[in-house]
């Protein structure tokens, strides 16, 4: 019998890794962003396979629907000269490869010392017996707003601060800009702006 889930898992993760590689290596920056979007999609597919459909949809809505659109926006407007970029990137080869190899060695050490619990498969398939028979949206909500309420609110607060910071950094009050003032427009009366004149024939006002 064909195990559809396994096939789909390898298809999704294969495309995910391939497109992640293409994000880094693509010559055109717009192509990079498009491959990034493909990678997000396949990650969402993996979430669906793990029966975490809420996370999958949120990943698509937040990352593909909002974040990547802004990336695409910026990248399209930049008009990067690739040859120039390549020339300036050559100067960073040494330090870049140094940092990269340090990170790679750390990862390898981590992998060697990683201990997988014997009941890990059970934990991943049935996360908590408490939340059985619930859709995973409800289960997530139950966890986030009880056990992790403070952490959740803290994360929200950090995002709020980041947003205020971004606005404070970019907000400029420009002089001499004529803005639409809706209140003034709505409070305008007919007698302030309209004058009825009875013009006799063959003469101007």
């Amino acid at each position: 019998m064909i195990d559809t889930t396994a096939i789909l898992f390898y298809v999704f993760s294969g495309i995910l890794l391939g497109s992640a590689m293409m994000v880094v290596t693509a010559r055109n920056t717009v192509h990079s962003v498009l491959f990034l979007i493909l990678a997000f999609f396949n990650a969402a597919g993996l979430f669906v396979l793990a029966q975490a459909e809420f996370l999958a949809m949120i990943l698509v809505i937040v990352y593909v629907g909002a974040v990547a659109v802004l990336f695409l926006f910026v990248v399209m407007m930049l008009d990067v000269q690739l040859s120039q970029l390549r020339r300036s990137a050559k100067g960073y080869t040494l330090i870049g490869s140094l940092v990269g190899s340090v990170l790679a060695i750390e990862l390898i050490f981590l992998m060697l010392n990683w201990k997988i619990s014997s009941n890990a498969p059970d934990l991943t398939t049935t996360p908590l017996s408490l939340y059985q028979g619930m859709s995973n949206t409800e289960a997530l909500g139950n966890l986030l707003y009880t056990h992790y309420a403070l952490a959740f609110q803290g994360a929200g607060l950090i995002l709020l601060i980041a947003m205020i910071g971004a606005i404070a950094l970019t907000l400029r009050h420009r002089e001499g800009v004529r803005k639409q003032i809706v209140g003034d427009q709505l409070s305008r009366q007919a007698k302030e702006s309209l004058r009825l004149v009875d013009i006799p024939s063959r003469s101007g006002t």
């Binding site: 498009l34 979007i37 459909e53 809420f54 949809m57 949120i58 698509v60 809505i61 593909v64 629907g65 909002a66 659109v69 695409l72 926006f73 399209m76 859709s135 995973n136 949206t137």
Partner: peptide
């Protein structure tokens, strides 16, 4: 599916790509 509304919202938020591309 359990997350039907989110699916609809996700698909409609992707519509912008066709236009921007």
């Amino acid at each position: 599916i359990n997350v039907g509304v989110l699916y609809l919202f996700a698909i409609s938020s992707l519509g912008v790509y066709g236009i921007i591309i």
